[in-house]
Simulated assay, not measured.
Amino acid sequence: MTKRTKEILNRLDTAYGTDFICYLNHDNAWQLLIAVILSAQCTDARVNIVTKDLFVKYDTLQKFADADIAELEQDIHSTGFYRNKARNIILCARRLIEEFQGEVPSDLSDLTSLAGVGRKTANVIRGNIYNDPSIVVDTHVKRISKRLGFTKESDPEKAEYDLMKVLPKDHWILYNMQIITLGREICTARNPKCGECFLSDLCQAEDKKC
């Protein structure tokens, strides 16, 4: 790890702490899995509003597996892309019951074999449920990691591999949580508040506004 990388991580730790935080409300692994599927192209805040009632109505994995797809589409309508999400949630629930005895697997290949689950979703589960070091490349992580010079890749999987080389394993999960906060509060996609950023002197973005 370079001196510059270490300084960036130290500042993130100082600003946001080192506690693991999941922004999607859940009581168990399968609820988090469904919440992450719903979070595609949707804010965590909106997902939490929807799942507050959703997880009461469908309080078991079996109820999701047996759900009427048209009814489930209406239940999750406000999260967007509700047709694909409803189909994937039902198929995912059925496979979890049929192939994994109702348990959410920890293995990356098993997770990505589930409907609607890609590397990002799988890594959220591995990191938050199983504490398995993993890097989740969402829109904030990809954007800010490029600005920091940790990667030049736009493809999330390629960016993930770059970050695995740059960051120490003990920060893989933490980095995502910290960068999400930085991306929401300061380094926003539009009009980043560079003058307020505690990483501005280490940022390599060409359009830095300070």
Rank of each mutant, 00 (worst) to 15 (best):
141 V>Y: 02
131 N>I: 04
73 E>D: 09
135 I>K: 13
208 K>T: 12
99 E>I: 04
195 G>W: 03
136 V>N: 06
177 M>G: 11
180 I>V: 15
202 L>T: 14
44 D>R: 03
161 Y>W: 07
40 A>D: 01
21 I>C: 09
138 D>P: 11
25 N>S: 09
67 A>P: 14
139 T>S: 15
196 E>R: 14
107 D>L: 02
113 S>H: 01
72 L>F: 12
109 S>A: 13
53 D>N: 14
97 I>S: 03
203 C>R: 09
62 Q>A: 12
116 G>K: 12
4 R>M: 05
143 R>K: 08
150 F>E: 10
81 F>K: 01
129 I>S: 11
8 I>N: 10
69 I>Y: 00
25 N>A: 09
175 Y>T: 06
202 L>N: 09
35 A>R: 04
92 C>P: 03
35 A>G: 11
152 K>I: 08
96 L>M: 14
152 K>H: 15
79 T>L: 00
137 V>P: 15
165 K>D: 11
101 Q>G: 04
114 L>Y: 00
18 T>E: 14
168 P>S: 04
99 E>K: 08
46 R>Y: 00
136 V>H: 10
80 G>R: 02
156 P>C: 09
169 K>N: 07
106 S>T: 03
38 L>P: 13
191 N>S: 15
127 G>C: 06
129 I>M: 13
61 L>H: 07
33 L>C: 06
88 N>S: 12
175 Y>N: 00
139 T>D: 03
152 K>S: 15
103 E>H: 08
35 A>W: 01
158 K>D: 13
87 R>V: 00
113 S>C: 08
157 E>N: 13
91 L>F: 15
168 P>E: 02
65 A>K: 04
55 F>W: 08
104 V>A: 08
82 Y>E: 15
52 K>G: 00
156 P>N: 07
115 A>H: 00
49 I>V: 06
35 A>E: 02
114 L>I: 08
126 R>I: 05
50 V>K: 12
186 I>V: 10
48 N>M: 01
113 S>P: 01
1 M>P: 14
135 I>V: 13
134 S>A: 11
3 K>W: 03
100 F>A: 11
46 R>Q: 10
28 N>M: 10
28 N>G: 13
73 E>T: 08
40 A>T: 06
145 S>C: 11
2 T>V: 07
